[in-house]
């Protein structure tokens, strides 16, 4: 998955943008995500949250959720982990 590309869930409303690419297959709601516009669906899971970043620690894949949905993100059956921003004192 190339950095900067946008992927949609085949099973829910989730859309993500790849922030750090990796050569893996990202799944949402147990189905591979689709590059570009999504199909949608009614998967249920832990869900994705708008504006959160999720990482697959094994491959280094980092994605940003740009549309939330009900499905959960996984690579090879391992759930992605939410990443918190390292907040700095605002300088701008």
């Amino acid at each position: 998955m190339k950095t900067g590309t946008r992927w949609s869930s085949a099973t829910c409303a989730t859309e993500v943008v790849v922030v750090k690419g990796a050569d893996v297959v990202l799944e949402c709601g147990d189905a591979p995500m689709i590059e570009g516009a999504g199909a949608g669906g009614d998967a249920v899971g832990e869900g994705t949250r708008l504006g959160k970043r999720y990482t697959d620690e094994a491959s280094g894949l980092l994605v940003l959720c740009v549309k939330p949905g009900a499905g959960s993100l996984c690579v090879a059956g391992v759930p992605l982990v939410e990443v918190a921003a390292k907040q700095l004192p605002s300088s701008d």
Binding site: G4, K52, L64, Q87
Partner: peptide
């Protein structure tokens, strides 16, 4: 380029974390 600007924003700002009364 996007790769210079975007990681800084994503890495240092939590999405929609501003209080409703915050103004810059």
């Amino acid at each position: 380029r996007n790769r210079h600007l975007v990681p800084y924003v994503l890495g240092t700002v939590e999405f929609l974390n501003a209080d409703a009364d915050e103004a810059i």
